[in-house]
Amino acid sequence: MSKEVVITFMLVLFVLHQDFWFRDDATLILGILPIGLAYHMAFTALAATAWLVIVRFAWPKYLEEEENEGNEQ
C-alpha cells in the first residue's frame, strides 16, 4: 500500500470527523445515545480499523531493517 493511499485515508477520516450533519440533531439511538455521540463512537471504531489496515499493509520497511540490524549486532 502506497504512502499516498495512507495519507488519503487519513484525510478522509479527518473530514468525516467534522460531522456537520448531526450537529443539531438530538435524536436518541435506542433511547440512550444521542446520535452525535453514536456517530463519533462509530468514527472511533473506523479509526481503529484504519490503523489495523495500516499496520497490516503499510508497516514501514525501514523499521524491519533497523530491527534486523540490531539483532545482528
Binding site: M10, L13, F14, H17, D19, P34, G36, L37, H40, M41, F43, T44, A47, A48, A50, W51
Partner: peptide
Amino acid sequence: IATYGKVASSSALIHSA
C-alpha cells in the same frame, strides 16, 4: 456530548498518527 467529538474521537485518530 460535543466533549467527546472535540477531544476523544479526534484523539483516536491523531494519537495513533
